[in-house]
Simulated assay, not measured.
Amino acid sequence: MEAKKAADSLVVMNELVLPNDTNTFGNLMGGRLMYWMDIGAAMAAGKHCNKPCMTASVDNISFKNPIKLGNIVHIEVKLTRAFTTSMEVRIRVWGEDPLHQHRYESNEAYFTFVALDKDNRPSPVPELIAETEEEKSQYKAALRRRQLRLILGGKMAPDDATELKALFVPAAGATESKT
């Protein structure tokens, strides 16, 4: 299986916020946005592994700014890392007020997808090649996010999360400065 570049998984979606997409405040409903984010993430994961994929987990989705009725939703999706059978996907969302030509950050989240074989069992995926500095940073951090997901899901003991633990526990032999 040949490794693939992170850039090759890029998916960009745009949606217009219509009345049926909004709540009583005239804002895009969170569930509708999550639906669009899941579709984009599935497309990016499928591009990477050329197999059907299913959502395995969704990390914290933070809503920074609401997207209003009549605004445009821009969704950018790209893989951050591929593991044995799973892939971490980063989703970034912006809103755009087309009348005032103003674009603003709205959301960000990480989804995990698992590739499936013909019997709907987890299937190996190609490695991911991170090229840019941002891709390399996301790639490195993906292992810590994965360990946290596994701990929270009861699939890993906290003591086994070496990458995550390294953020909080001083390295062996390191001395603390007492200034």
Rank of each mutant, 00 (worst) to 15 (best):
residue 2 E to V: 08
residue 6 A to F: 04
residue 8 D to S: 15
residue 9 S to T: 15
residue 10 L to N: 06
residue 10 L to R: 12
residue 15 E to M: 07
residue 21 D to T: 10
residue 22 T to E: 03
residue 26 G to M: 11
residue 26 G to V: 08
residue 29 M to N: 12
residue 30 G to A: 10
residue 32 R to Q: 13
residue 34 M to T: 12
residue 36 W to G: 02
residue 37 M to V: 06
residue 38 D to C: 07
residue 39 I to S: 00
residue 39 I to G: 01
residue 43 M to K: 07
residue 44 A to Y: 02
residue 46 G to C: 06
residue 47 K to Q: 09
residue 53 C to N: 09
residue 60 N to R: 13
residue 63 F to R: 01
residue 69 L to Q: 10
residue 70 G to M: 06
residue 70 G to S: 07
residue 74 H to P: 00
residue 76 E to F: 12
residue 77 V to R: 03
residue 77 V to L: 06
residue 81 R to C: 06
residue 83 F to R: 04
residue 85 T to V: 08
residue 85 T to F: 02
residue 86 S to D: 02
residue 90 R to K: 15
residue 92 R to D: 11
residue 97 D to W: 03
residue 98 P to M: 09
residue 98 P to I: 13
residue 104 Y to H: 12
residue 106 S to R: 02
residue 106 S to C: 10
residue 112 T to C: 09
residue 114 V to H: 02
residue 114 V to K: 03
residue 116 L to I: 06
residue 118 K to R: 15
residue 121 R to Y: 13
residue 123 S to P: 04
residue 123 S to K: 01
residue 126 P to E: 04
residue 126 P to F: 05
residue 127 E to P: 03
residue 129 I to F: 06
residue 134 E to D: 14
residue 138 Q to W: 10
residue 141 A to R: 08
residue 142 A to E: 03
residue 144 R to K: 15
residue 146 R to E: 05
residue 146 R to W: 05
residue 147 Q to N: 09
residue 148 L to W: 07
residue 150 L to V: 04
residue 151 I to L: 11
residue 153 G to E: 14
residue 154 G to T: 11
residue 159 D to G: 09
residue 159 D to H: 12
residue 161 A to T: 09
residue 164 L to W: 09
residue 164 L to E: 03
residue 166 A to L: 10
residue 171 A to L: 13
residue 171 A to Y: 08
residue 174 A to P: 02
residue 175 T to K: 14
residue 176 E to V: 13
residue 178 K to P: 00
residue 179 T to M: 09
